[in-house]
Amino acid sequence: MEKILSIFITLLLITILITPYLALCTDNIDVLRDEFMSVYRDIVSLAKRGVDVSKLVHELSKVLDLINKGDSESLTKAKSMLIDISTQVKIIKSRANNIILINNIIKYGIAASIISIPILFYFLFPRIYLAIWFRIRRRWIVES
């Protein structure tokens, strides 16, 4: 009887000790997941505006894997990585308008350059062709 009682008390003590730890882990996961979703939403918003976020997505993907592992070591690592990513997202968000403007300038600049090729060809090619034609034949002598 005493043996059963001692086993019961031991199990009870273990349960009491483990329960707050498990609750803490669950809380941590929930908090981390909320933070993760918040960062993910920001990244999607930036991506939809045309900002290159591939590096951040790669890092965030690692964070997700760590959160899903669920052990305390992984969660700690995930948290520190998430803070880093969150900081980077904030920086990119503040520069987003400039990045989008530069991207648009590059895009329309390329389009304008392509359109100008036939126009330049029309005006310049006959002159260049004739200049080369005369240069090649400049030593020629016209005989009657």
Binding site: S61, L64, N68
Partner: peptide, 12 residues
């Protein structure tokens, strides 16, 4: 009911 859930983040 779902027995298992696999979660991933995929870039474009």
């Amino acid at each position: 009911p779902a027995i298992m859930i696999f979660e991933k983040l995929l870039d474009h």
